[in-house]
Design a protein around this nucleic acid. Structure first.
Lengths: 180, 180
DNA sequence: CTTACCATGTAAGGCGTTACATGATTCA
DNA sequence: TGAATCATGTAACGCCTTACATGGTAAG
């Protein structure tokens, strides 16, 4: 079966909002979805080809700002395909926390190594949380508009979980450093 | 390169604690790591073969409880390999929340569909949180022992994040249902 | 003039899931 | 006796990352 992988639906979802090039799709995923989904050019361009092949989008070459690009536009068939997927129950949320794996086995290397992983994790979380909070402020002003409401939901999810990560980091550090 | 994928280190980590069969490894992963890592027999058995091939473990066929099994034992070389990996910085934690993707694009299908996804997510979270809390109680009693301390850390992570998921579920539901 | 960014792709290889295949033992 | 669990694997396929390859434009 072609065109049944998740990236197909991510791309169709973005195209449902407006026509985009492969390059713009990558930018959109990085900016808006990267917290819970990632994709590289190596998946995006082949998926776009397969999407067009299946009749879910059409492409047209244009020149804009003296740059030639290929813009993809979703078709009715593509919209139906997307909706059908959106209505299906979620199969599985996949988490692969390498950080937690390394902590789980840290009895082999000791507290100092474990702490390094926690601290690195914490730094990443702080950086991303700051970004989320800017997004949230921007979105709250326009959230009465239908489209933004759902995006706000995902940003809220990021904020809530990242805050809990920080709480855990604190507890984890004191479990490893406090003298009994 | 053989034997450099993550499952290699998960398995070595488990074997570092005690010798196990492929079947037992699967049970251990499901019970202790499934919150942040998963693996099927289709990865475990081939990885075990490659681990043995690389000299990170040795195998021996035995009969126990009138069942024949193949037990793998980690070697010194395997322990070194594991430690070296545990000390390397984490490359990336990978999250693929299909739930959030579907929510992100829910403007295409509306509040009712979005709510269904949230409610399904919430049910899963509640079920798993209950399990984590049992684990935590059991671990707290023995957490002064080195090995359990690190396992407790990962359980605490699960509890903290799952509690935050529930908070988000509540907020998300009211964002979608409250009349303004 | 050179660095960064815009823009589109291919190829190889690794990773991982799913389905299939087999067979023994235990328990109800 | 039949279902569940123990136990070990293979094969196919799909998915995804990484590296490679190319070339144009904008800005300093």
């Amino acid at each position: 079966m072609q065109s049944e992988n998740k990236n197909t639906f991510i791309i169709l979802g973005l195209l449902a909002h407006k026509p985009l090039t492969g390059y713009e799709i990558k930018l959109n995923i990085d900016k808006q979805l990267s917290f819970f989904w990632n994709a590289g050019y190596g998946s995006i361009y082949p998926t776009l080809a397969s999407i067009e092949n299946s009749g879910y989008a059409t492409s047209s070459s244009i020149v804009e700002n003296s740059r030639s690009k290929i813009i993809y536009t979703i078709t009715e068939k593509g919209k139906e395909h997307l909706k059908e997927w959106l209505e299906r129950p979620v199969k599985k949320d996949e988490l692969r926390y390498e950080t937690l794996v390394k902590l789980f086995f840290s009895s082999e290397v000791g507290d100092a190594e474990a702490l390094k992983h926690i601290i690195r994790f914490e730094e990443n979380v702080r950086a991303k949380l700051a970004i989320f909070e800017v997004y949230e402020k921007n979105l709250e002003n326009v959230s009465t508009k239908e489209k933004h409401k759902y995006i706000l939901l995902t940003v809220m999810f990021g904020i809530e979980t990242y805050k809990s990560y920080l709480i855990w980091c604190k507890k984890a550090k004191s479990l490893l450093t406090d003298k009994k």
